[in-house]
C-alpha cells in the first residue's frame, strides 16, 4: 500500500498529555481540508485520546503506528 505523505508533521515526543493532542488540534485549526497531519508522541494517553478526538470531530483517522520508541498518529482533515 502506498504510504500517505503528511502535509504537516508534529514531533511531540517527550511532551505529556494533553500537550500532543493540543498540538494536533492547533495544527488542525491552522490547516485546510485535505491536509494530512501526523503526530509523533511518547505519551500513552495520547494514543487513546487523539483517535477519539479525530472521530468525535468528524475527521478521518488514517492510522496509529508503533515506531521505535514512540508512536505515530495520522489524520486527514475532512471538514
Amino acid at each position: 500500500m502506498e504510504e500517505i505523505k503528511p502535509t504537516r508533521v508534529i514531533d511531540a515526543r517527550g511532551s505529556f498529555c494533553p500537550g500532543p493532542l493540543m498540538e494536533m488540534i492547533k495544527a488542525y485549526k491552522q490547516g485546510k481540508v485535505g491536509d494530512v497531519i501526523s503526530i509523533y508522541s511518547t505519551d500513552t494517553g495520547t494514543k487513546k485520546d487523539a483517535p477519539e478526538w479525530i472521530k468525535k470531530s468528524g475527521n478521518e483517522l488514517i492510522g496509529v503506528y508503533d515506531r521505535k520508541g514512540y508512536f505515530e498518529i495520522v489524520m486527514r482533515k475532512t471538514k
Binding site: 498529555c17 494533553p18 493532542l21 493540543m22 488540534i25 494517553g45 485520546d49 477519539e52 478526538w53 468525535k56
Partner: peptide
C-alpha cells in the same frame, strides 16, 4: 472540557 474527560489527569 476540551479533552475526553473533565480534568487533565485521568
Amino acid at each position: 472540557y476540551p479533552l475526553n474527560r473533565v480534568f487533565t489527569i485521568p
